[in-house]
Amino acid sequence: MIVAETKPLDEIKALLSDAEKVLVVGCGTCVTVCFAGGSREVAIMGSLLRMAGRMDGHERQVEEVTVQRQCEWEYLDAIAEQVGAVDVVLSLGCGIGVQALAEHFPNAWVVPGLNTKFMGLPLEQGVWAERCAGCGDCLLGLTGGVCPIARCSKQLLNGPCGGSIDGHCEINPEVSCAWQLIYDRLTEKGKLEVLMEIQPPRDWRTARHGGPRTIVREDLRLPEDHQAGQSMKQEA
């Protein structure tokens, strides 16, 4: 999932500036399960903003809504009327949700209420850890299912480095050495010989180093006459 955290309230208040009508928009997918931007967090944010407005002598009308997924036009269509009725839309979605709202409703002013952190998983209740860097050329098949791009501080392809100390990374003793994990995993599975193959320098163009990425699946695309019928943008 995409993992995010709420921005400090003072920063959110500054982003809202002198807006009198605010719509807080949550997302029912990733940020719901990481307790950052679901319907509950939207209700809390709404309550905080209404009280903060009163305390600051600048009362705001704060509305709340949560869509199933902020990153798909179809779900955003359902809130077009609410978006059109406010001065500022405060998105409690990830960075994709914020941009989807801004792109879908070009007349609206959309600001983020969260800081999007990483793609990861919950290790235990209340603890999330990064697991994927979205590098575009997955090599987990060579590393026993442990990603050295996301989990090695140096993103080494042939580790570990000299900073691996008792299974931990030199940058922080609380960070596990990804290459120690890889070594342990391959040992456990009897596949240590995989490490004998030296990995050549990587083509990082598949990652963000090649600029923003797009996927086009011609087999899934609709014929042009259908595409024209699909509303890509809607006036807020």
């Binding site: 509950r40 209700a43 809390i44 309550s47 905080l48 209404r50 009280m51």
Partner: peptide, 11 residues
């Protein structure tokens, strides 16, 4: 009891 109940009471 949820934080939301407490906030609503204050609100």
């Amino acid at each position: 009891l949820d934080v939301l109940h407490v906030l609503r009471a204050f609100e």
